[in-house]
């Protein structure tokens, strides 16, 4: 038996909207620790790892771990029917083939429920080791989205290089070249405008811009995004889901010829 009541129900919609264009079907794993989702995109270039902690829920009961396979497009359709301030409650039986979403308006004057069919999905679960990253940059999520969008209009790949001078995003294409450098800024008046760079060693990696741009669909989740890079390993692009969990994207670097 699963029962989970999330006061900030809109968080679920934001998470699903952020990943549904990369992954069509996925298992949402539920256990006493909360909700998690791990899935590779259809071309197996990137990996999505989401976790929502049980204590993020006003009420959370999960009698035994379960895997709920679902179409993320269909899940997005259901969650789109929730009001932006609605409280969302999920209910599922241990051996059922459906999950029910109940949406309650904050004034309790409207209640709706939607039953979503579950599906069996074979998925490969990968172990993600803890990594000591050479460079970690925490920047406004909107700024990251803008850089991805701007550079995508010029080229297909981006070199992200972190040095003591800052983090430089470089691309080139038929139009020409483009460089954007982000420097540490911890003195901005608003905390949401601050950029923090933690550099242990210089590092430069090349990535396909279309994936980095896709990750920016998580922008509504958080004020900041954190990019963590180390040599010859995937970049981790992390959005905190307030103090409730995280949504992480891993992207394999491109290997230069």
């Amino acid at each position: 038996m699963l029962e989970a009541r999330l006061v900030q129900g809109s968080m679920l919609r934001k998470v699903v909207d952020a990943v549904k264009d990369l992954v069509s079907d996925a298992n949402i794993d539920v256990s006493s620790s909360g909700f998690s989702l791990q899935a590779m995109d259809t071309s197996h270039v990137s990996l999505i790892a989401m976790h929502l902690r049980a204590d993020a829920f006003e009420h959370f009961r999960c009698d035994r771990p379960m895997s709920m396979g679902m179409s993320l497009a269909n899940l997005a359709k259901v969650l789109k029917c929730a009001g932006s301030d609605d409280i969302v409650t999920l209910k599922a039986n241990d051996d059922g083939d459906t999950v029910t979403f109940m949406f309650e308006s904050p004034k309790e004057d409207r209640v709706s429920d939607f039953e979503l069919k579950l599906m069996d999905i074979d998925s490969e679960h990968l172990g993600i080791p803890d990594t000591d990253y050479c460079a970690t940059v925490t920047m406004p999520a909107g700024e990251y989205a803008r850089i991805c969008k701007d550079l995508s209009s010029i080229g297909d790949t981006v070199v992200i290089s972190a040095t003591k001078d800052g983090v430089k995003f470089t691309t080139s294409g038929d139009v020409g070249t483009a460089n954007v450098t982000v420097r540490q800024n911890t003195t901005a008046d608003k905390k949401e405008d601050q950029t923090i760079i933690d550099l242990k060693e210089p590092v430069a990696l090349t990535f396909a811009l279309r994936y980095l741009t896709s990750f920016a669909k998580a922008t509504p989740l958080a004020t900041h995004v954190t990019l963590s890079m180390t040599r010859e390993l995937p970049v981790m692009v992390e959005y905190a889901i307030q103090d409730m969990g995280h949504l992480r994207f891993y992207l394999a670097p491109k290997i230069e010829d």
Binding site: H44, V45, L126, G127, T206, P234, Y250, A252, K254, D257
Partner: peptide, 14 residues
Amino acid sequence: PEGQTSISQYFAKS
């Protein structure tokens, strides 16, 4: 895609 490796080669199957 050209020059692009699969993410699964970086993480062990668990």
